[in-house]
Amino acid sequence: MPEPAAAALAVRAGATVFSGEKSTLLQTGPRPAVPGRSGREQLQRVVRALDDSPPGVVAAGAVPFDLDTPGALRLGPAEVVPGPLHLPPLGRRRAVTVTRSRPRPAPAGYADAVRAALARIEAGQLQKVVLARTLELDALEDWSVPDLLGELLTRNPAATSLAVPLDDPAAPGARWLVGASPELLLRRRGPSVLLRPLAGSAPRSPEPAEDVRRADELMSSDKDRREHAFVVEAVVEALSPFCRKISAPEPELLATPAVWHLATRITALLSDTATTSVDLVAALHPTPAVGGSPRAAALDVIREVEGGPGGIDRGCYAGAVGWQDGDGDGEWVVAVRCAEVAGRTLRVFAGAGIVAGSDPDAEVAETAAKMRTVLDAAVAR
């Protein structure tokens, strides 16, 4: 593991960072982009790009939610080591003064979008769709990516904390994706594959008895278990052409500081070890955890309802974020509990799965709770 002081310097210098429970990646130095006009094309070119690179180079970065748009995958030397990243204090944190806050859409508008989605579900057009919203915060000075990452690492030890440049990291005003994702899309080590999809959520409570009640209610919720089942079934179906001995047990509870989730630990063995982690990302993404079911119908609703006038562009939010080495091994998380940082603007994203029985006001509350992961870290004193 890099010495803490050296790791802190790398973070300050703008390293690409993925810090999870099992491993940490730090990618530094020049990072040319993986060529391609779309995320799909970039994924297809990762293996060839790595074959043409010197030893020790990995492909790391972000795949967009919409694979027809460009992603931010970069090639560069990296150190991948066991365990999470441990950083010493990154210096005295300067206070952040927020000058403007802009929800997009406003909570009432998001509730209306949920109602529109429910009408499509009732009409039989689809079974589930995930709708997202953002909160944009403007500050007096530029947001500090290292400060935000340091807070996320401290507050979310069980998540994968990440800082990924979406533009040339050396360019002034470069955009970064920063977050603490609790959702493992996949981890590939040789023939073994592990996935942990999340779907079905409930806000945490600071009162212990109420927190336990909410967790129990989530586990017994027909609506949330149906939402979760859509995801697990789609993941298993997508894995089937590549894997054998797929195991998908009953869901369990997973806790983050802000939200309870239903989670399923899916394990599988590759039928052919020539199948790389990016091959699996291309087959799986987007799962119903961030898109919906059926996939094509859900994506149509997202474009029409979420991306209409006054709507949002997800960019790499709800995409896949991670890395792959020259052996085809890699680790990818779903880009949730994330924000896009660009100069003085911080765009915090959150989404909720809409199925029959969803309550618009409850979905507004759920997305607000999910935003707390980044917001609490961003404005910490």
Rank of each mutant, 00 (worst) to 15 (best):
P146W: 11
S247E: 15
A123P: 00
G200H: 11
T16W: 13
A72P: 01
D138Q: 14
L162G: 04
T345M: 13
T275L: 13
V341W: 08
E304P: 01
A380S: 13
P241V: 11
G307Q: 13
L135T: 11
P54S: 14
A6V: 13
S271T: 15
A10W: 05
V63A: 06
D216T: 12
R115W: 01
Q125A: 14
L75V: 06
G307N: 05
D325F: 10
R133A: 12
G83W: 09
V114L: 04
R48Y: 10
R188P: 03
V231M: 06
S221A: 09
T345Q: 15
S240P: 00
A60S: 12
L270F: 11
L198P: 00
R94V: 09
L85N: 02
A283C: 04
S101I: 15
L299V: 03
H228R: 07
L185C: 03
V46K: 03
S144A: 12
A350V: 02
A369E: 04
K370T: 06
P82Q: 11
V290K: 03
P89K: 10
A352Y: 08
E304G: 01
T276N: 07
L185D: 01
S144W: 09
D313R: 14
V301K: 00
L177F: 11
A113D: 07
A78N: 05
L375I: 14
G190P: 00
V231C: 08
T28F: 09
T99F: 11
P172K: 11
A199R: 07
S192T: 14
L26G: 01
V364G: 06
P197D: 08
G353R: 06
G179M: 10
G311D: 02
G322N: 00
A13Q: 14
G76T: 04
A380K: 05
V235A: 05
A378Y: 10
S277T: 11
A6M: 09
V57E: 03
V232D: 01
R40L: 14
S358K: 06
P64S: 10
R133I: 03
V63N: 05
E237K: 12
L135E: 13
E79A: 15
A320T: 02
D52A: 15
T24V: 12
A289R: 01
D279T: 13
S192H: 15
A209Q: 12
S277R: 07
R133N: 08
R187I: 05
R104F: 09
E122A: 14
L87N: 01
F18Y: 09
R45I: 08
G150W: 08
P84R: 14
M1I: 02
L140M: 13
H86S: 14
